[in-house]
Design a protein around this nucleic acid. Structure first.
Lengths: 343, 343
DNA sequence: CTTAGCACTCTTCACATGAGAGTGCCAATG
DNA sequence: CATTGGCACTCTCATGTGAAGAGTGCTAAG
């Protein structure tokens, strides 16, 4: 569907005004606020047409208009003036990343708080995940006579630990030798490439068997779609917005932005427009997000470890700003990771 | 201050009724609900006296009475009938711990969710901390030519990691030798016991210097009062209570139960009554908690690693239940840790 | 096609009114 | 003299009413 230029302009103004004020916008105030060369009556006619086309609605008979989900969609897809962050804004963000230490996890947390602060909505960042997880090195530390800690470092520079109980005693010296042997045997491999023990070979000791079992399990867990909960930041700021003014709505929303709930619910649709995806209102499948919108981007080098970074907020959201910020932050993260891996 | 038996009984009933209903309790409904052998007029006289003594108040002239902070304090200190959990309840909790894997962190999380579920309030659990943190073992993993990952295991079975950049190249073989040497030199020591390098000795290589610096820093950070944020669970359940029905109050409370905010605010007062401390309303120093109460207990073996476990809720809280649950859960955690360390 | 004009609708606010719950006090009572 | 019945009083809460304000939809004229 295409709108006449004038009608589109009016829709854009309605969206802009409503996003700014959270109040339904009437024909008269629209004419006053922006110098349209039109009377309020003409605007009313255009509004009636826009309503006919499903772009805007009425809360009640004598209220102004508010954009419908469809109206927002049209705005985002065709009307919104996209922009990039100014050099000044870019520098402010970059500066924060350069202040931080060079830890992957810190970057992710920082990305979340930058977005939450700039956009006053909920920022989401999933932990970066590799497609292929390879064992880099493992280590065994004696805890008790028959209990040890397995520490495994993987190529996504993740460090994983697991406690192992042995049926027999095993001392550090023995564990160190075992670790060294397993490192040559398993190092650099993914879980599925782990060598299958030759059934005819001498059966491994109980200690070795326990370690291999734990290691395999650990690597598989890490490899599998064991999607970690995303980082969530800025919930309170978002809840300050008027749409959440009623406590019931607030509680529902609080539940919707729970890390565990969000884990499966972040839309993984197509990342159009230079990698940024906007999912508006009822385009979301899951109930609790049907009057909210996501603005998301993938981050991480092509084919390398990556994740999703973005914003969740009420449908009444500054989409232009959100897209610009999310895109830039995802670019920064990608660049940082590229340096990290390929430096 | 001591109250006459009858007056105390009436106070206890007011507290019980109010805790149950969240409604101010009037003289008549009090007489009806419990078979007091008294008329409402007599109860009114007693209530007037209790108000005189500061135990209860009026929201307004023609409303029933609600306990004051002082009233709750008297109730908790003198009136409340303490109880232990029934064997059935104990078993239900214990069962959950036995289901879980034998990881310290999981226990802490589990303790939080058990308390949050049983008491429908916010559960708090701080991470266990040792008084003395000793290095158990360290490991170096090459990431890039001049960058490595330092993994240090400490005796609180914590695993810590740190990325180190070297001014020169260092390969895995070299790193492994260095790690082995540092393990003998630093293993089993606290940060303050780390040997000071003899200034006359041959200067260590740049790689070794970088590693030692990172290790020392890491150990100090861990040793210091680097109190981690507590686990917080059950916020939404608490916010469902009528005292948080207004969205402003809800936002304020949401801020008050933020992990980062709570970190410094958990009262560390005296743990009386078999180790359980109850801090009511304005006994809290910090503003946001002045109309809330904490029920806390220390956990962990005497002199060993330990932390604090407890509940935060509105002053209108089932103190008896809270004390019984918190005490039991802290006992369970203590026992688990004892087994873990001394088994 | 645009616009002025006007009746109509709906929300919001202030204000009044009545029911209900609970208190405080007084005088009577065992 | 502690207890109690009685009663006036106060305050909240829900409901209703009326006026103001904002905005629409429609019609007729430019």
């Amino acid at each position: 569907m295409t709108l006449s230029e004038r009608r589109a302009r009016i829709l854009a103004l309605i969206v802009d005004d409503f996003v700014g004020s959270a109040q339904p916008v009437g024909s008269q105030s629209l004419v006053e606020r922006h110098q349209l060369g039109l009377s309020s009556a003409t605007v009313r006619n255009e509004m009636a047409a826009l309503e006919e086309e499903g772009m805007i609605t009425h809360p009640h008979t004598s209220a102004g208009r508010i954009p419908s989900h469809r109206g927002y969609r049209y705005y985002v897809s065709s009307l919104m003036q996209e922009r990039d962050l100014t050099p000044q804004e870019q520098f402010t963000i970059l500066h924060q990343f350069h202040q931080a230490s060079r830890q992957l996890e810190e970057w992710v947390g920082l990305a979340a708080s930058v977005l939450a602060n700039n956009l006053r909505n909920v920022a989401l960042v999933t932990q970066p995940r590799l497609l292929e997880v390879r064992l880099k090195q493992l280590q065994l530390v004696e805890l008790l006579e028959n209990r040890a800690l397995l520490v495994a470092v993987t190529n996504d520079s993740g460090v994983h630990q697991r406690v192992i109980d042995f049926p027999v005693a095993a001392h550090q010296e023995q564990l160190t030798r075992l670790a060294a042997r397993l490192n040559t045997e398993f190092g650099g491999k993914t879980a599925s490439e782990f060598p299958v023990r030759d059934p005819n070979a001498e059966p491994p000791g109980a200690v070795e068997a326990a370690v291999v079992a734990a290691l395999t399990d650990l690597m598989l867990k890490e490899q599998e779609a064991q999607v970690e909960s995303p980082i969530v930041e800025g919930v309170r700021d978002m809840l300050r917005q008027p749409e959440f003014g009623h406590s019931d709505r607030m509680l529902d929303t609080l539940e919707a932005v729970d890390e565990r709930r969000l884990r499966g619910a972040i839309p993984s649709g197509s990342f159009d427009r230079e990698g940024v995806a906007v999912v508006i209102g009822d385009e979301n499948r899951e109930g609790p997000y049907q009057d909210m919108s996501f603005v998301l981007a993938r981050y991480g080098p092509e084919g390398g470890a990556g994740g999703v970074v973005g914003i969740l907020g009420p449908t009444r959201m500054q989409y232009g700003e959100a897209v610009a910020n999310v895109r830039y932050v995802s670019d920064v993260l990608t660049e940082l990771m590229r340096e990290w891996y390929e430096a």
